[in-house]
Amino acid sequence: MIQLIAFWLFAVMVIASAAMVIFARNPVHSVMWLILAFFNAAGLMLLAGAEFIAMLLVIVYVGAVAVLFLFVVMMLNIDFAELRAGFVRYLPLGALVAIILAAELVVAVFAWSAGQIDLASRVAPMTADKSNIQQIGELLYTRYIFLFEAAGIILLVAMIGAIVLTHRQRGGVRTQNIAAQVRRRSEEATRLVDPGVGQGVEL
């Protein structure tokens, strides 16, 4: 009963907020609806018993990715008239993408009604006595270790690539060397001089 109420709550909220992402006029509002959709999707995953994935979804997507979205969107100065001007031009492409997605959905529904694929239970049978994290960890670090490490290496390459592409050496920047500042003692920083009358001090 409680699960059912929770399921309908999360499911309706996911679909409603996903629709609002598209319908909202203001792009910042769109991002906020997107965040709500992520959040409710995490709720659905909790109901499915995948608490670890749900938490990761919130930490990674809501906590980091969506913040970057919001950052970029907040800085944009969007001209709505210009946006609407492109509507007819992009309509064929948009319609094509929509048709492909709809077709895939239909295929998925038919495939599912034809009979469940017990792929999940064959590769990694869920056992009730172990927690989610342990099960994922045991699979990830044994059977899928190469894929896991490959994913890590790809991310590393992407990160280095992004840094190399965007980093530029700017000349004439005076950076602060904190270690040197802390090392500095009053003996080397100050100098006592006693200049004679009419003589200056050389710095």
Binding site: M55, L56, I59, G63, N132
Partner: peptide, 11 residues
């Protein structure tokens, strides 16, 4: 919950 610390990070 099992993932208490992750929950705190998420929140």
């Amino acid at each position: 919950i099992n993932v208490g610390l992750l929950y705190i990070l998420a929140i």
